[in-house]
Design a protein around this nucleic acid. Structure first.
Lengths: 260, 260
DNA sequence: CGGGGCGTTGACTGAGATCAATTATGGTGG
DNA sequence: CCACCATAATTGATCTCAGTCAACGCCCCG
């Protein structure tokens, strides 16, 4: 296992866009500075003008915004390999904050280095740009959840999304994933109150779709969960191959491999 | 007035990132093909694999997604100069559709040309990338609206946003702008029903904040509208200077020019 | 002048918010 | 190892904003 294979950002970029050795080496050399952030602490705040962009090595983080009167909206949950504030390279001032959901380990890339990448490595530039576009696509689906889906469907959909992300990372075992998200955070992410999140989770449990306790989510009925969530993973822009690991082989699956 | 000044995309990119003559010329040469689209017709559909990206010259368009059971979410409204599907350059398949709200006039840039831009014009690449990041920032604020704001605040906020956009384009006169959005579309954009949009609009009118009839929106009390909308325009990432055109000069305005 | 969107209104319903306790749970220091 | 505390989860009662259903008017355009 080389150092390159240990870098989750390189692994991610490779998944969405093949890189050549020189590009990998440049990235590897670029993300040197390491930082540790405690759970529930800010990584970047709205209004900041960062001079470097962070990349998640370990742990989970989320983006959020707090309105003038205190209401909070959470926009995304981030997993290792995510450049959660790549935008700060081109947009001087942060229009939202990023905080650690668990203890997080970060690497950072200076904006100066990112500038050099855009000057010298068009291929790498497209890869990182593409990554920011995928994030926007996920944001849109999330918005469709809040705007269109019932609270039951919303939670189911977020679970489908998180399990899919973890599977791509190889961090899901038989539909079981880490779930460090509190019910309050889940509410702020999906536009509902913690109380109603609680009742809806109980409904999902009662329906036998999931179990959830002690920061661990287990999906018991994947097909049914996807159905109720209206989950159509095209928006994740991951190659269909990457979803192949679900353990429910059937003749239909092999005939229509694009259907997830 | 040169041909360059007539191209709304160049004007927009210049606003967010200064260009040199060669870059302007390349863009100008690139957007040749013109298309006219009738109101309420699709420009691109979910599932399409475009080979060129469109740019709005005239009219208004919107992005949307329709869930499996017919519910629709509208994600954004686009004005002249917007590259409403720049993402299709890097994401092969459309995960959402784009449709014309009014009769639209488009120019298109082939993905081959965009590829050349990323190879040869890093500055231009950053400008277009930055534009896609601003769009994502607007998306996030929109999401905060649906997730956190009441329906009254939501509509007020969208109006603030649209007026601000039109002002930057020089298409707003004393708080009056084109408003070709039907109440049904407004509902699908803001996650509420047309009936409730109707009642909420009446409330905004009764409160003396706006008038709205015959595709024309007039803001009567800009400060009050911003206040109830919790409008904090940082997320638009336009230089504060660009909001200076509001016709309410006061001593305070000149002392604190950053306050919009 | 007639039809189809679009806007408007009223009555009723319901999903989810709010308020207020009570019960786990997990991390900490003695 | 255990008491302690803050945070998170859970439960019940009540309320309200917004959805649903249905009807009707208006206006533009063919």
């Amino acid at each position: 296992v080389s150092a390159e294979d240990d870098n989750p950002l390189i692994r991610k970029l490779e998944r969405i866009y093949p890189l050549v050795a020189e590009e990998r080496a440049f990235i590897l050399a670029a993300c040197t500075r390491r930082v540790e952030i405690r759970a529930r602490h800010d990584i970047v705040r709205e209004g900041d003008r960062p001079t470097e962009s962070g990349m998640l090595l370990e742990g989970m983080a989320f983006r959020y915004k707090i309105l003038a009167d205190g209401r909070r909206q959470i926009f995304s949950f981030h997993t290792p390999g995510d450049m959660f504030d790549a935008q700060s390279f081109l947009l001087e001032q942060m229009d939202h904050g990023v905080a650690a959901l668990t203890r997080c380990s970060l690497a950072s890339i200076s904006h100066r280095t990112l500038h050099q990448i855009t000057e010298r490595f068009p291929n790498l530039t497209r890869a990182i740009w593409k990554d920011t576009l995928i994030e926007a696509a996920i944001l849109r689906e999330w918005m469709a959840s809040i705007g269109c889906r019932s609270s039951y469907e919303r939670i189911a959909h977020l679970m489908c999304e998180m399990v899919s992300k973890y599977e791509v990372l190889g961090l899901a075992k038989d539909g079981a994933i880490d779930w460090p998200i509190t019910q309050l955070e889940l509410g702020d992410a999906l536009g509902m109150t913690a109380v109603h999140v609680n009742r809806t989770l109980q409904q999902l449990r009662a329906d036998g779709l999931i179990t959830l306790h002690g920061r661990k989510l287990v999906v018991l009925q994947w097909e049914e969960l996807k159905r109720v969530a209206l989950f159509a993973p095209r928006y994740l822009h991951a190659s269909p191959r990457e979803f192949g690991s679900r353990r429910q082989p059937s003749s239909i699956d092999s005939e229509i491999p694009l259907t997830v």
